[in-house]
Amino acid sequence: MGKLTARAIAERALEIGDTEGLDAVTIRRLATDLGVTPMALYWHYKNKDQLLVGMADHLISGFAPKPAGERPWQAQLRDLVEGLVRTLRIHPCAKHVFEQIDAVEVPSFLAVWEQALSLARSAGFSVDESCLLSKYLLQSSIAIADASAHVPAHDPAEIRAKKVGLQALAPETYPNLVAMAGPLICGTPPGLYDTFGVDLVLSGIEALAARR
C-alpha cells in the first residue's frame, strides 16, 4: 500500500467499529489489516485513546457548517443539526466513539461547536445557557443518528414475540401500549424518526428563545 496516513488508519478503525464493535479496534488488529507493523501506527496514534479521538475527528471532518449568510439563526441551527445527524449516521459506531472521548479534543468538532455557541447567543441565550444548549444539541444529534435506537432487532421471531407480548397486556390498563404495539416494537419510518426528532429539539429551543 502507499504511505500510511492517520486518515487511512481512522477509516479502517471506523469500518471495524461499525461491523464488529469498538472492542475489536486495536492497534495490533489495525496493523494486520493495513499490512504494517504496530510501530508504524504509533507514529500517528500512541494509544487507543488517541485513536478514538482520531476516529471522532474523521467522523466529523466530512461535515462543514454552511456559511451564515443572511439566514435567521433558526434556519442555520436546523442546517447544523440535520447536517450533523447525516454525517454521524454514516457510521453506526459513532455514538460509541463519542461516548469514550472528550469532544474538546476533536479538532473538526470545534468549528461545529463554535457555530452552535454563536447561534445560541444570537438567539438571546446567556453564556451558561449557550454552553448547555450546545452540549444538548450534540447529545441529541448523536441520539437521533444512532440507527440502533430505532431499527428493530433483526430476528423476526424476536420482533413478533415482543409485539405479541405488548398486545397481550390488559387493554383497560394499558390501552396505548396495546394499540401502538406495532410501531413501538417494529419501529417508525426512518424519515419520520429523523424529522420528528430534529423538530422536537429545535422547537424546544425556539420556544425558549421566544421567552427571552
Rank of each mutant, 00 (worst) to 15 (best):
L34P: 12
G191H: 11
A123R: 08
A149Q: 12
G54H: 06
V151M: 12
L84R: 14
T37E: 15
E114T: 04
P190H: 15
R28E: 14
W113F: 08
P92A: 11
L133R: 03
A153L: 12
L133K: 01
A75F: 07
D128K: 04
R121N: 03
K162M: 14
A64M: 08
C131K: 05
Y174C: 06
A68N: 10
G21Y: 03
T5L: 09
Y193F: 13
V201E: 07
C186G: 09
Q76P: 00
Y136H: 05
H58D: 05
F98L: 01
H96W: 03
M39I: 11
F109P: 02
R7K: 09
D199E: 11
Y42H: 12
E129Y: 01
Y42V: 00
W73S: 14
L119V: 07
A210P: 00
P65R: 12
L117K: 13
V164Q: 13
F109A: 08
P152M: 14
C93A: 15
L208S: 02
V85R: 02
S61C: 07
V25A: 04
V127Q: 15
L177C: 04
F125G: 13
I27N: 12
R29F: 01
F125P: 08
L4T: 00
R12I: 04
V127C: 08
A116H: 06
L177G: 03
L184M: 15
I205D: 02
G35D: 12
K162D: 10
E114H: 06
A207T: 12
V85Q: 04
D102M: 01
A56Y: 07
A24L: 07
L84F: 13
F63H: 14
I101S: 03
V85A: 03
L30F: 06
S122A: 13
P38R: 15
R160C: 04
L52N: 01
A147T: 12
L208E: 02
V164A: 15
P171N: 02
S148P: 03
V151G: 03
G83E: 05
L22Q: 07
K66D: 10
H150L: 02
L30W: 08
L4G: 05
V104S: 07
F196I: 12
A6N: 06
S134W: 00
D128G: 01
V25K: 02
G54I: 08
W73D: 09
G2I: 04
L184F: 11
E206Q: 11
V104P: 00
A143K: 02
D128P: 01
F125Y: 10
A145D: 04
Y136G: 02
N176L: 13
G62K: 09
S118F: 08
S130M: 07
R28A: 07
K66P: 06
S122K: 11
K46D: 07
S108N: 10
I16F: 02
A68I: 12
E129W: 01
H91T: 07
I205A: 05
K3H: 09
R121A: 13
V127K: 15
G165S: 12
M39K: 13
E206P: 00
V25N: 03
R12K: 15
Y193A: 11
L80P: 00
I205C: 02
D23G: 13
